[in-house]
Structures are given as C-alpha cells and as structure tokens.
Design a protein around this nucleic acid. Sequence first.
DNA 1: ATGTTAATTAACATATTTGCTAAATACAAG
DNA 2: CTTGTATTTAGCAAATATGTTAATTAACAT
Lengths: 104, 104
Amino acid sequence: MNTLDTAYSALSDPTRRAILARLALGEASVGELRAPFAISAPAISRHLKVLEDAALIARTRKGQTLVCRLNPAGLKTAREWLDHYAAFWNASFDRLNTYLKEKP
Amino acid sequence: MNTLDTAYSALSDPTRRAILARLALGEASVGELRAPFAISAPAISRHLKVLEDAALIARTRKGQTLVCRLNPAGLKTAREWLDHYAAFWNASFDRLNTYLKEKP
DNA sequence: ATGTTAATTAACATATTTGCTAAATACAAG
DNA sequence: CTTGTATTTAGCAAATATGTTAATTAACAT
C-alpha cells in the first residue's frame, strides 16, 4: 500500500476526520480524543494507529499518557495529489464552459 | 455515508486514481479506461460505479459505449476539506517551529 | 431475426475493516 | 510491591470491498 492509499483510506472515516479536526486545535492524549465518541478504547486506539500508519499523526509517550499531534507532512502528500489534478480538472471544466458558451 | 467518506474512500484505490488521472486528459469509454489494467470488465465497471457514487465522474451513453468524464464538483469538496485543515496544520507547524527555535 | 460488441448485474470467494470484550503492558503513586 | 489509570494487543463477529466467471441488457449491423 502506498502513501496515498493509506492517507485517503484514513481520511475516508468520519471519526478519523473528527480526530484530525480536533488535533488541528492542538495536541491531545488518546483519552481526550476518545471522550467525544461513544466508542471503546480499543476502537480509538485502532483509529489512531490507522492515522499514524498513514503518517497523518504522530504519538509520543508523556508519562502515563500518549500525546497525539498532527503530522503536516503526511497531509501535504494527500493535498498535493488532489491539487495537481485539480489543475487539469479545472482546465477541462473551463474548456467545457467555453465550448458551451460558444456553441449557440 | 457522507460525501467526504465516499470521495476519500474512492480516492484510496490506486486503480481509481489512475482512472481519474487518465480522465484528466479527456473523456474516455469504459473499454478505453479498462485497457491499461489486467482486470476484468466487471471489476472496472465497479470501480467506475464507486467513482460515480462519489460524484468524482459522470457517465453518459453514446451509442454503444458509455463515455466517462470527470466531475470537478465532487473533487472540489474533497480538496476543500484538506485545504481548510491545512491552514490549521501549517499554523500548528509554524508554532512548533517558532517554539523550537526560541527554545535554546 | 441473429450475431457481435460494450457494459452491467448476479453469484460467489476471499481479504480487510470496524467494533466489541477480555487480557496484557506501561507508568505512577502510595 | 500492590493498586489504579492509560493504552494496546488478542480473539472474535459482522459488514464491506475487491476480484473472478457466467449470464443479461443495450445498441448496432447484416
């Protein structure tokens, strides 16, 4: 599985996107990240592992707790793929628009 | 499943990203899209359905063939989510950098 | 009408994902 | 060193994803 596979796959789950949104506001422990969800500790742990494997977050132990923070590098990869093709897409769209306008 | 779920899930498969990359160069029939892959017709058909359900492409019949083209609107949604949070991420990263530089 | 090409749907096998509970590990505190 | 808190790993069940072959539908051409 390449980087884009794991990154987009990780982003496809709403719980994981919510976790990222939370982490955008600042780092948080696993327990803190779990609090808003009606979901077991192992379930959150797995979501975090998926995000970590996708290089979207990093975890470091701080005493008894594991602190999670965003990993901007991983997200950059995902954005770049979309942004790259967006250029083509918009170009195609523009051509279509031009075509439609010139047609009558 | 909401729009972002289906969009990112669709993007997580390399075959589907390759299909999108191909369509960025211009519309193509199902058969043409299939050609580069060692994969059955039903398999391609399903990939295209996933992309269509995610609003990333559109298909229209043209005589005997189905012509596929990109749907820029769907991609825009996916990009916007990433771009929105990228702002936070970069900000966090900047704060971290500042912190690390000021520390010594 | 019949055969051919393009593409989808049906039916099935296998692998992955997600969630749960119970058990294990890591650290802190008394 | 025993207990409590934070988190992960193990084991299991249900749902989802992906690919295959066989059968079906749509459009075209003879």
